[in-house]
């Protein structure tokens, strides 16, 4: 098996985005935001959605963390760890591009 390069890794300078075929969509039947992806539907919690809504190819991870620190009035280190772990997990599942 020829593995095409190492897997993408999150850094503070990464600019995450959702691939075109991954859709964040409000579902009026369940009154919740769904993530529609090949062969799966995911229901992220509010914290996850706050990260995903900022994955639009404009902001660095650093910027997203700073934004959420203000919004949640939370510790920088704690938010940074959560955001990086979340994005790495979603990148590993090919749901977020870095």
């Amino acid at each position: 098996m020829r593995v095409p390069g190492p897997k993408p890794t999150v850094s503070l300078r990464s600019i995450p985005s959702l691939p075109k075929h991954i859709r964040l969509q409000f579902d009026p039947v369940r009154q919740a935001v769904a993530v529609l992806a090949p062969e799966q539907v995911l229901w992220p919690n509010e914290a996850g959605l706050d990260i995903l809504r900022r994955c639009d190819g404009r902001f660095t991870v650093d910027h997203i963390i700073a934004d959420l620190v203000t919004e949640y009035d939370a510790e920088q280190e704690e938010v940074a760890a959560d955001v990086i772990a979340f994005l790495q997990d979603w990148s590993d599942k090919l749901l977020v591009k870095l």
Partner: peptide, 13 residues
């Protein structure tokens, strides 16, 4: 083994 090597590259169901 392939799943482990291909994390973030290709999902194997």
């Amino acid at each position: 083994a392939a799943r482990e090597k291909l994390i973030g590259i290709m999902n194997i169901d």
